[in-house]
Design a protein around this nucleic acid. Structure first.
Lengths: 214, 214
DNA sequence: CCAAAAGTGTTGCTACTACACCCATGC
DNA sequence: GCATGGGTGTAGTAGCAACACTTTTGG
């Protein structure tokens, strides 16, 4: 692939990934320790012959050992001074993954951790570098908006789940308590879910039915 | 501003603008004649020290003599082969403008014209170059989605307008006929509109009240 | 008075909320 | 049996669509 418009100095193009998951009743973001910038989102420079989605997949595979995940483009951040090293335009993506799928990656890489969200702000353990807190904010706002007219929440759960688990995901993301009967009926009416007929076991109460994605 | 990551070949970054307007009962998009690519969207390369929104404003000012307009980021298109001259990543924006504001620009520049939309596809007078038809499709889908939970439609009308004119804009964009009483009440209940008390004149029928944005 | 379009009132349906209740399990 | 959480039924309400109707202008 040739290099066009080479008379002008060019910005660098990066992708940054906001990988969100729900664990222990909280929304969390995958971040990585950066030597002199504190915590930052996983990301990387887009190669000259690499599609944007391929760059995202590469970042996810390298950093989080995730060969596949739900990924969607979020927004492109292009402020001139967002990176002190020079002009870097970042095409941000967000990814949704069930918490279980991150366990091995977190155990293997000691520079990765899950930062806890407090509403739409990253709270623990510290602020993010660059404009990455802004990017996370936009990602959570997008997720909150999408959650109640699409089935994206299912990306945060394993293949089989109960309605209670799904409701917990909604309540965690939206930061509100929802009424159980209304939630049940809304979800079932939409047709995103399919009952398996099988039941959960182990609780000291009536076992819940197990659902899968329709 | 320095140039980081200069060991690698970099993609060029461009902005492309989908400027939409409603005129003569049709949704139209501003396009420009390109010497060897047919019709294309107005756009330009982002300068090394220029924010993305500034590049958009520059394009709109140069091409359409619009110093200000409603503009929102749409999506970033990064397919490797989308431009045969080389790797160009395009951050697409859409803009909404009342048709009257385009009259002078269209009269002055003979390489600009308004292509007519047929649903979400550009119809007349011919196909667009590059992947610009895809970009327009995404823009119209976004507009259709936003129109019924935000006040963006008002950007397509002059400062003062009647409910009938607003309904025409909705019907044109969505491609459906709407019921007048339902439309009236929905718009008024939302609080986007403010009645002026003044009435339209001239029609051979009861004059309509004039509204402005709330 | 008539045509045309603006604007209103009324009814019925749908969807969501709130609340009360019943069901199945472990202990 | 009791505590716990899963699951259902029902009644009230808010929003929206359909339809019929009234109002105000020009001719």
């Amino acid at each position: 692939m040739s290099e066009p418009f080479s008379r002008h100095a060019k910005p660098a193009v990066a992708v940054d990934v906001v990988l969100l998951t729900v664990a222990e009743g909280a929304l969390k973001v995958l971040v990585q320790r950066h030597t002199d910038r504190g915590l930052v989102l996983p990301g990387g420079i887009v190669r000259i012959d690499e599609p944007l989605e391929a760059a995202v997949a590469r970042v996810l595979a390298q950093k989080a050992h995730l060969p596949d995940a739900f990924v969607e483009q979020l927004y492109t951040f292009g402020a001139v001074d967002r990176d002190p090293r020079g002009r870097v335009i970042s095409v941000a993506y967000y990814a949704l993954v069930p918490a279980e799928r991150l366990a091995t990656a977190l155990a293997a890489a000691d520079d990765l951790l899950l930062a806890v969200m407090d509403g739409i702000e990253v709270r623990a353990p510290s602020r993010l570098g660059y404009d990455h807190a802004d990017i996370v904010r936009v990602a959570v706002e997008r997720l909150r908006a999408k959650i109640d007219y699409t089935a994206v929440a299912l990306e945060l759960l394993p293949a089989e789940f109960t309605l209670r688990a799904l409701q917990d995901v909604y309540e965690t993301i939206l930061g509100v308590r929802l009424a159980k009967p209304a939630f049940r009926r809304k979800m079932l009416d939409r047709g995103f879910l399919k009952p398996t007929g099988r039941l959960e076991t182990g609780g000291a109460h009536r076992p819940a039915e197990i659902y899968v994605r329709a």
